[in-house]
Simulated scan of single mutants.
Amino acid sequence: MVTLAEVASRAGVSISTASRALAGRGEMTTSTRRRVQAVARELGYARVPSAGGRPSGSGRLLDLVLTGYHTAYADEVTAGARSAAADAGYDLVLTEERDDPRDDWPVRIRRRGSSGVLLGLITPTANQLGVLAEAGIPVVVMDPVADSNRGLGSVRTTDREGAADAAEHLLDRGATTFAMVNGVPAYRFGRARREGFISALRHRHPSIEVPVIDASWASAEAHPQMVDLLRRVPEGERIGVFAGSDAMAAGVYAAAAAASRRIPDDVLVVGFDDIRGARWLTPPLSTVHQPIRDMAGTAVRMLADAATGEALPAEPVVLPTRLIVRGST
C-alpha cells in the first residue's frame, strides 16, 4: 500500500505539504499542488474520506455559501435556493464564509460530498476554487462582484437597465435636479447601476451634473453629505435621488428628515433590490425589483443539472429587473 511519505518523497516536498496539497488546504503554488497530485495518481495513492478526501459518490446536497445570514438579502437568497433545491430533490446546506485565511469551507464541502456550490456576493480565492474543481464540484456565482466570471457559471440581473428605468421615472415625475447614493466597495453591479442611472439622465440632459455620494451597501444612516446636499436644493425644486440599494435609500429618508425635506413633495427617492423592508418605509419606497429569489432558484437548477453531467452555461444567465412604483415618488 502506497503511503503519504512515499508521495511526499517522490514529489520532493514534506509530508505535511503533501497532506495539505491533497486535502486542498493551505497556501502553496499551483505547480506544487499539481505536482503532488500527479505523483499521488501515478503511485495509486488513495486518501481515506475521513482524512479529507471527497466521499465516494455524491450526496443529495447543495451548499449555499454567503458571508452572513442576518440580512434581508440573505433571507431572499436562502428562500429561493431552498425551494429550488427541494424541488430538485436536494437538501440545502448553509455555509458561512469567515474572513479568515484558515477558513476551510471548500474542504468541508468536499468532505460531505456536496453536488454543487452556490456562492453569493463572494470572491473565492484560486486555491478555494481549486479544491472544488479537483473534486469535480460545480460552482455557480450569484451576483458576481467582478466583471470576469473566472470560468464559473453565474446568474445576475439587468443592473444597468434597472438604474436607467429609475432615472427615466424620476425625470417623468418632475425631478429638476438629481443625486445618487452609491455603494462601497465599488462592486460590478454598483458600477453598472451608476453608469445606467447617469447615462439615462444625460441622454435627455447632456450637460447634467449628478453628485454621487458613497456609502456602505447596508447603510441606513443619514450621511452628512446627503443632508447638506438636500439643504442646498432651492425651494420649489424637486430632487430625484437614486440609491444603489434599499438600505441606502432608507438612509436618504433619514437625511431628508434631518434636512426638513418631505418625501415625495421635495425629495423623490428610488431604491434598488425590493427587499421586504422597502414597502414598510413611510412613505413606501419606489424601487427597482431585483428578482433575488428567482436568481437563487435559477442558480440551484443550474447546479442540479450540472450534477447530472450537463455543462454550466458559458455566458452569464441574466434575469430582468422591473420598476416598482410606490409612495416615495
Score class of each variant (00 low, 15 high):
98 R>G: 07
92 L>R: 08
103 D>G: 10
93 V>H: 13
101 P>Q: 11
109 I>M: 03
118 L>F: 04
92 L>D: 05
119 L>Y: 13
90 Y>H: 14
97 E>I: 14
91 D>A: 15
112 R>E: 06
85 A>R: 14
116 G>S: 07
112 R>M: 07
94 L>H: 13
113 G>L: 01
114 S>R: 02
83 S>F: 11
100 D>G: 09
88 A>Y: 14
86 A>I: 09
90 Y>S: 06
86 A>T: 12
119 L>S: 06
115 S>D: 03
117 V>D: 04
100 D>N: 10
108 R>V: 07
113 G>H: 03
117 V>Y: 05
85 A>E: 11
85 A>F: 11
106 P>E: 04
100 D>P: 08
97 E>F: 12
96 E>M: 15
119 L>E: 07
89 G>W: 07
95 T>D: 10
90 Y>E: 09
97 E>D: 11
90 Y>Q: 06
113 G>E: 00
118 L>I: 02
107 V>N: 00
85 A>I: 12
119 L>G: 04
104 D>N: 11
103 D>N: 14
100 D>F: 07
100 D>W: 07
94 L>E: 06
92 L>P: 09
85 A>N: 13
102 R>K: 08
104 D>W: 00
92 L>K: 07
94 L>S: 07
111 R>A: 06
98 R>F: 07
86 A>V: 09
116 G>R: 06
114 S>Y: 03
101 P>Y: 06
118 L>E: 03
105 W>L: 02
85 A>Q: 14
101 P>E: 09
89 G>C: 07
